[in-house]
């Protein structure tokens, strides 16, 4: 996430993500609006992380895994996963292949590509930075 003249932060609130931009040196929050992309963005990150952790997996498996690790904090349709998977595949971060599941069912398996691995690293770092900045910011806000 580029940090430049204007800093933009995205906070998941409920199942809607809000995007805020803070002009440098000012302490006021500007709410610029909902962005579906944000959910898609964090979802993409979660997919990549899942594939890194578990290796090749089908869509249903990914959905279940995300649901479990997230502790059902946000309840979202599994269906929203599929456009995200397609997007990642189009971008070359994941690749798909038809295979056979544990209980002998035909399923489409997704796996992380090398570009995907790098992207995951990058995204994770950005996300950590963002949350760190936001945390500091919120802390300073409290003091003020």
């Amino acid at each position: 996430m580029p940090v430049s003249f204007e800093v933009t932060y995205c906070i998941p609130i409920g199942h809607v993500a809000r995007c805020c931009s803070i002009p440098k040196g000012q302490g006021r929050l500007h709410i610029v609006g909902d962005k579906k992309d944000v959910w898609q963005g964090t979802l993409a990150l979660m997919v990549l992380k899942t594939l890194e952790a578990l290796g090749p997996l089908h869509g249903y498996g990914i959905a279940r895994r995300i649901e479990q690790t997230r502790g059902d904090l946000l309840s979202v349709n599994y269906g929203t996963l599929y456009p995200a998977l397609l997007k990642l595949e189009q971008e070359g971060y994941i690749a798909s292949e038809w295979g056979v599941s544990d209980n002998n069912r035909k399923a489409k398996y997704y796996k992380l590509t090398r570009a995907g691995g790098k992207q995951l690293e990058r995204e994770a770092r950005d996300w950590q930075q963002t949350t760190a900045i936001l945390a500091r910011f919120l802390a300073s806000k409290e003091r003020a």
Binding site: G59, Y78, E89, R105, K108
Partner: peptide, 28 residues
């Protein structure tokens, strides 16, 4: 590029999507 290709492989992609949905539901 892949999206552009997607325009012309419509039927095959549709079949695959059907199969993927079916397998998803089956597993669930």
């Amino acid at each position: 590029w892949t999206r552009l290709r997607g325009l012309f492989r419509k039927e095959q992609l549709d079949r695959e999507l059907d199969a993927e949905m079916a397998s998803h539901l089956e597993m669930h």
